[in-house]
Amino acid sequence: MRVTFTVNGRRQEADDVWEGESLLYLLRERLGLPGSKNACEQGECGSCTVRLDGAPVCACLVAAGQVEGREVVTVEGLADHSRERSEGGRTTGARGTSLDEARTWQAGPTGVGPGSHAADSLTGGGTELSPIQQAFIDAGAVQCGFCTPGLLVTADELLERNASPSDADIREALSGNLCRCTGYETILDAVRLAAARGGTAKAGEGA
């Protein structure tokens, strides 16, 4: 069958899709978007988390045919999604810190996050990242990285809803994303860091 939908703002069409295929397979094997990861394929790890019409879902549990006409955002589109959100100002227009400012963030003695290495934030060839992506790198929340895409999509959506989550809120929101490497401490650091960089200016919403 043919499936037509929007991925990361772009219209995509796939032909000869087997009816039993998942959205995850469609993204990874037919559309060249392997960022969403295939760790369990049973909704028990969150590594394939994508936004489906805005809601974080496990792409492995969405039948490919079900996304006809719908909008999907994957980790590959997270930076754009985040930028559009801050430019559009619809939900997070009042966020205070620019990407550039976030990049030069330094932990003070009482700062959030793991230390004073933020000056090393440049890690690649100038790829523009969303605040949560940058925070994951800076906080050391990435080891093998297989859980990272799903965690980023989930955490980004959390911060969209709740700009200053408590630790318990973060834990509950991320409880569907397994990580086997980090012990989660640096992931908590990263979400706290992104929240701190994002400021608390989200009037009328959040915690």
């Binding site: 392997p34 997270l78 690649g124």
Partner: peptide
């Protein structure tokens, strides 16, 4: 890593594969 990257032995230098891993571009076996 970009030329701005510092970090010799003993520093908390960030991962050179970090950007690839947070953008979904890092090429895993699967």
């Amino acid at each position: 890593q970009g030329s701005g990257t510092r970090g010799g032995v003993g520093e908390s230098t960030l991962r050179p594969d970090g950007t690839l891993k947070v953008t979904g571009e890092f090429a895993y076996a699967s």
